[in-house]
Nucleic acid binder design. Sequence first.
DNA 1: ATGTGTTAATTAACTTCGTCAAGAATTTAA
DNA 2: TTAAATTCTTGACGAAGTTAATTAACACAT
Lengths: 389, 389
Amino acid sequence: MPRRTPGRAPITSPAAATVFELVMTQGPVSRVEIARRTGLSSAAVTKAARPFIEAGYLTEMTSGRTGPGAGRPASPLAIRPDREYFVGIKITGDDLIGVVTDLRADVRCSYHHTLGDHEVDHVVAAVAELVTRLLDAGDYRGRTHCLGVALSGDVDRESGQVRYSPFLGWRGVPLAELLEDATGLTTTLENDVKALTVAEQWFGDGVGASSFAVVTVGAGIGSALVVNGGLVSGAYGVAGEIGHVPISPAGPACHCGGTGCVEAIASTGAIIDRARATTGEPELTMEQAVHRARGGDPKLREVFATAGNAIGLGLAALVNLFGPERVVVSGEGLETFDLFEEQIRTTFAAQAFGSARRCVLVLRPQPFEQWARGAAAVAVRSLFTTGQP
Amino acid sequence: MPRRTPGRAPITSPAAATVFELVMTQGPVSRVEIARRTGLSSAAVTKAARPFIEAGYLTEMTSGRTGPGAGRPASPLAIRPDREYFVGIKITGDDLIGVVTDLRADVRCSYHHTLGDHEVDHVVAAVAELVTRLLDAGDYRGRTHCLGVALSGDVDRESGQVRYSPFLGWRGVPLAELLEDATGLTTTLENDVKALTVAEQWFGDGVGASSFAVVTVGAGIGSALVVNGGLVSGAYGVAGEIGHVPISPAGPACHCGGTGCVEAIASTGAIIDRARATTGEPELTMEQAVHRARGGDPKLREVFATAGNAIGLGLAALVNLFGPERVVVSGEGLETFDLFEEQIRTTFAAQAFGSARRCVLVLRPQPFEQWARGAAAVAVRSLFTTGQP
DNA sequence: ATGTGTTAATTAACTTCGTCAAGAATTTAA
DNA sequence: TTAAATTCTTGACGAAGTTAATTAACACAT
C-alpha cells in the first residue's frame, strides 16, 4: 500500500489525470483536440480542466492564431511551468547530483555534492543540505513540496524503501521516510533507470509512444521498458537487464556468473580491460584509449567496435522480443558515442527482424543532470497520477 | 475499428468482465471471495453476476462444504461449461485441425483435414466443411455461435484480415468475413502463437500470472508475451521473435538475414541439417536422429544439446529483459524434449540474472489439437471482453 | 455594419457504474 | 432458543461521463 498521499493537486478522476498528462506532454492543445485524442467528450474535458485552471496548474492561451477557416477560435490549454517546483536528486556511490525543475521537468538550477561516507545518516544529512542549498538558490522555497530521489539498485517506490543497493551497501533502508522527516518535502523514491524512463516518457523522446525503451551504457548496462503505457517491473523485481543478455557463448565471463553478457563486453570496465590487453599497456586509461581511438589507432578502434557490436546485438534482442516504437540509448558511456554509433546501428540493422527494424534508435549522450532530472520527473508524476507504475 | 459485435453475452461493464473472467479461470468462487480478489464491493459482484446466472453462463453451487466456523455458507459461483460451444481451427500449410470446445476451452471433439490447395476459396470451403463435420459430431449445432481461427503469420484480429501469411502465400485476405459468410458463425482471427498464449492465460499455466510468456519450438521458434495482463503486440506488429534473438556471433546464418539466431540453431530444420553434417549421412531423417540420440549416440546427443543450449540462451534473454513469472515452452519440437530439457534448464540457470532465475520454466510437449484449442480460446474470449488485446 | 455559417466551449439533464449502509438469510455455538 | 458469525441482497446515493442544446467568438459575404 502507498505510504502517503501528496494530495494538493486536483486529480480527482481518471479523466482528470488523462487530460492533464496530455496537456503536460503535448504542449498547448485546445479542449476539442484533447477530446478527440483521448476519446472523452468535450464536456468532460471542460469539467476536468477547470480545477487545474483554478489551482493555477493550467492556463488558457487566449492567444493569437486559430488556424485558417471560420469558427470560434480555440483557447488552447497550456501548462504553467512555474506554478510549482520540484527537487530531484540522484545518489551515486561517489556523489549527489541535485536539480530544481519546474512542472515541465526543465532544469532551473543544479548542484553537485561529493559524498564521503555511505552511512545512512550521513547520506540523509547530505541530501537535506543539498536540498536547502537548491531551494535557497532561487525563489523556490514556497512553491516546492516534492522531492524525487533516484539511485541504482532494487528500490520499492510504493513503500519508499531501498531494498538493496550494491553501491551504497544498503539493505532495507526506509529512505523516503527519513528524507521526508529531514526535508519536510513529500518524497518519492525510484530506481535510477526507471526514473530516467519516466522523464523520457513524459518529457522526452517517449512522448506519444505507447511502447519504448531506455538503455543506459556506462559502468553498467541497463534498461527500462514501457509497454502499453506501463513500466515493466518483472514478477520478481528484475526486468530490463539488457546488460546480462547473453550474446556470445565464447565471450568473457561476467560478474553475474554468466558468459558473454553484453555488460561483460561493453561496460566501461570491460572496454578498459580489453584495451589494456590488446595494447599490452596495463596502465592505459579510458581517456587515453578514447583519444588514441579517435586518432585512428586500429587496435583501439576495434575494441570500441566490439563493444558497439555487443550493444547492437543486445538492442536487437530487446527489439525482436518487444517491438518498441523507439529506443533511447544513453548514459555516461555514450559520451564517446562517435566511436560506437556506426557499429551499433550496423549490427542492429543486421539482426533486427522484419518490421522491428523500423524501430527508431535515438543515440544521445546524457549530461549528468539528466539522472537528477529523472528523479524530479518521478516527483512530478507522483503529484499527478493515482498510484500506477 | 472492430468489425462486428458478437453480442449476446451479458458483458455490460468492466466489472462484469472482471467477475466472469475470475469465475472462469479460478474455478468456483464465492461472491465475497470475488469481491476480495478484485477489489470490488460485494454488492457490485452480486449485481454483475446476476445477468450471467440468468443467461445460464454461471450457476450457484448450493453445494456442501462451507469451511469451518459459523456463518451463512457460501454459494460459490461456477461456470456452466456446456452452456455454449466454440469451434477452433488451426490452419497450417498442410492441413486443418479443428476442435469443438466448451466454455472452459476443454476439447469435446476434434478432426483433421488435409489441405491440398492454398487458394483462398478452397481453404474457406474446406474450413466450412470441417466446421459442419464438427458441429454434426455431437449436439453442438444450436449452442455454437463463435468460430476462432489461428494461423501463423501477420494477422490483424481487429479487422479480421490476414495481412501476410508466408505458409499460405496470402496477403490482405479478409478471412474472418469470408468465413463468417461461409459458416454463419461469428469469426475471430488471431495469430497462432498469440492464440496459444490466450489459451494459456485463461485456461492454462498462465492463470493468475500477471506476466508470462509462451515459447513454441518446432519448424520455427516463436513466442508471445503477456505483461500486466496484456498481450505485447509490438509497435510495428513484430514482437516475441525469440527465434531471431542473436546468441552466437560465430553461429550459422539465419534465413532472416541475421547470424546465430536461436532459430538457425534449434529449429527442426536446423537440427536435421546439423545432424546430417555431423554424421556425414545426408539422408538421415529426424526420426532416425531422435532414435539414435536416445540410444546414446554421442554425436547426435551433442546436436540436440546444442539446440537446447540455444533455446536456454534465448529464454535467458527473454527472462532477463521481461522478468515474467512463468514461461511455458511448448510446440512440436518438444515431443523430443527428453533430449532438450536438461540442457535448456542448465543454460537458463547459468544465464538468468539474479531473482529472474526464480521464473518458473514449464516444459511441455504440445498435442496438435492445442493449436486449435488456442483458436477456440480466442473465440471464447471474444465473447467476454470488450475489445482489448 | 450586419447577418450567416462555422467551430469552440459551456451548461444542463440524464445514464451508468459502483459504493455504502442496512438488513435478510442461513449456518454454528452456547 | 438465542447469540454470533458470515454471506448475500437491496435500495439510496454519489461520482464520472455522455448527449443535446446553448452560448461565445470569430470569418466572410453581401
